[in-house]
Computed example of a mutant assay.
Amino acid sequence: MKTITLEYCPKCGWMLRAAYMAQELLSTFTEDIYGVTLVPSLVSGRFQVRVDEEILFDRKREGRFPEIKELKQLVRDRVNPEKSLGHSEKK
């Protein structure tokens, strides 16, 4: 099982965003992941999502935050590619 890490900038006030995303991932991938870890970053402006050590999404690289639907698809593709996401599925 994989662990998801959400690293966020606390100075930017992104803890609630990270917590919301963690809640969504935990409820969607209950049987597919070991857990979600929230990590306050020491780097200003950082918001990264990792599965184990692989960076799935980096706010600075993408120039934006991930949509929750997009994030679920990225995580699903790494932890359980066969899983249906229902209404969050790619169209």
Rank of each mutant, 00 (worst) to 15 (best):
D77M: 07
I55Y: 06
R78Q: 14
K83F: 07
E82C: 00
K69L: 01
L71H: 02
Q73Y: 07
L74M: 15
G63C: 08
K72F: 05
K60S: 13
L74T: 03
P66F: 06
N80T: 12
L71I: 05
R64M: 06
R78F: 11
I55Q: 00
L56G: 05
L56W: 09
D58Q: 05
D58G: 08
N80F: 10
V79C: 03
E62C: 08
F65S: 01
E70F: 06
G63S: 10
R64A: 13
E62T: 05
D58V: 09
V79K: 00
P66Q: 05
P66G: 11
R76K: 15
L74E: 00
K69T: 14
G63Y: 08
E62W: 07
R61H: 11
K69H: 07
E62F: 12
F57A: 02
E70D: 05
L74S: 02
L71T: 04
K72W: 02
L74I: 06
E70R: 02
I68V: 15
D77K: 09
K72S: 04
P66A: 08
R78L: 10
Q73K: 07
P81T: 07
E67S: 13
E54A: 15
L71A: 07
N80A: 15
N80L: 00
Q73I: 12
F65P: 00
P81K: 03
R76F: 04
K83M: 15
E82M: 10
Q73V: 10
D58L: 03
L74A: 04
K72Y: 03
I55P: 06
E53N: 15
Q73R: 15
